[in-house]
């Protein structure tokens, strides 16, 4: 029986979700990484009030590197388990990509639900515009998931993996990174924000998703 691409992607999402629940390693690494990073910064500045601009940058730096710790193994783990070839045999390439991308986004969202309150509490930061913050985070994570899934597929064949993932991902996600920091700062302070930054983020999320979809076909 041949499933449609959408159902195949959904099945891969479901499979990854179950494997993730059972193994927990990727998610635990992400969560503990973000906790360690936040604690190390919050501890070392010890209660000094940090400017919102710096806080916004710190938040995104933590999200970025925690994402690197968690999602770089999206394809890697399958390759190590020897199931990647089978997966590619049974499912259409686009279904594999979008199933993985959806799961990546879901794990990043779960990470942020855990990380954001800890971050705001430990740095004693108030949020003036909560919806702006949530919208910014959602758009930022979508972009990281889109570019990160393709980047994870790129690093499968690499022999030296340490640090490769963030090196590759950073320049590509910079277009969502910078507006996200700027919008997060506005969300913390309650200052007026530039709506075109939100548009720019939506635009780049779309571009990264489409480009990942087109380029992934060449990797098979």
């Amino acid at each position: 029986m041949k499933l449609s691409n959408f159902l195949q992607a959904a099945a891969i999402f479901h499979k990854d979700f179950l494997v993730g629940l059972r193994r927990r390693a990727a998610f635990a690494a992400m969560a503990m990484f973000s906790l360690t990073a936040i604690a190390s910064m919050s501890l070392s500045v010890g209660g000094i009030l940090i400017e919102p601009k710096l806080l916004a940058a710190l938040l995104w730096v933590v999200i970025f590197f925690a994402a690197g710790a968690g999602i770089s193994g999206t394809f890697e783990d399958e390759a190590a388990a020897g199931t990647l070839a089978t997966l590619k045999l049974y499912a259409a390439p686009q279904a594999v990509l979008f199933g993985k991308m959806a799961f990546t986004l879901a794990s990043l969202l779960a990470l942020t639900i855990f990380l954001l309150p800890v971050f705001l509490i430990l740095f004693d930061a108030a949020v003036a515009q909560i919806f702006l913050l949530l919208a910014t985070i959602l758009l930022g994570l979508t972009g990281i998931a889109a570019a990160g899934t393709l980047t994870a597929a790129l690093t499968v064949s690499a022999s030296t993996k340490g640090g490769l993932f963030p090196i590759l991902l950073f320049p590509v996600t910079l277009p969502i990174f910078l507006p996200a920091i700027s919008l997060t700062e506005a969300a913390l302070t309650g200052a007026e924000f530039a709506p075109e930054f939100l548009l720019a983020m939506i635009f780049y999320d779309a571009i990264l998703t489409v480009a990942s979809s087109i380029l992934y076909d060449f990797l098979d």
Binding site: L154, S157, S159, L164, P171, V172, P175, A211, S212, L219
Partner: peptide, 25 residues
Amino acid sequence: LRAAVPNEKARAKVSAVYSLLSVLT
């Protein structure tokens, strides 16, 4: 990335994809 991928064919594919991805910036 090129230095990290030992297999010639894989390296060519992977680095070409990354090159095009980076043009998006």
